[in-house]
């Protein structure tokens, strides 16, 4: 069976390295599936999930915050700012972060980026299915 090498890297560590038979992701222009032998491509990824189908049929999913996917020469690389397995997401922590971000939005003196905090918390919660 045709396969390709897949590497998933987040800003803080390497998450996955292995062989896969398909990878599914979402670019700004829609859902995309990549099979071995696909045309070489560079995609920006939406805040969404990336699914890797391993050669034995198992599917591994990551929540990706902002990232890129490059495919060439049967080598597929996903670079993501933040990538988490849904089961790794701490729901109560994300909920607390959401509340905090909402407060920050109200606070005119807050120096951080409240909107980005809100967005990140929302994504985490959505992907954790909470």
């Amino acid at each position: 069976m045709a396969q390709m090498q897949v590497l998933v890297v987040s800003a803080t560590r390497e998450l996955y390295r292995g062989d896969a038979s398909a990878v599914f992701a979402r670019s700004p222009e829609g859902e995309i599936g990549i099979l071995p032998g696909h045309q070489p491509a560079l995609l920006a990824l939406e805040i969404s999930s990336v699914r890797v189908q391993e050669t034995d049929g198992d599917i591994i999913t990551w929540a990706v915050h902002a990232g890129f996917l490059e495919y060439r020469d049967d080598q597929l690389t996903v670079l993501a700012d933040v990538a988490e397995r849904p089961e790794e997401i701490d729901v109560s922590r994300a909920e607390a972060a959401l509340d905090r971000a909402r407060q920050h939005l109200e606070d005119p003196n807050y120096e951080g980026n409240a909107r980005a905090e809100l967005r990140r918390a929302e994504i985490r919660l959505r992907l954790a299915g909470a």
Binding site: S27, P28, E29, I32, Q39, P40, A41, L42, L43, A44, A66, F68, R72
Partner: peptide
């Protein structure tokens, strides 16, 4: 990049991100 490469969205926008 080789010419058959596809970009989504276009290279300028990807670079922007």
């Amino acid at each position: 990049y080789p010419p058959q490469f596809v970009f989504e969205p276009n290279p300028d926008e990807i670079l922007e991100r």
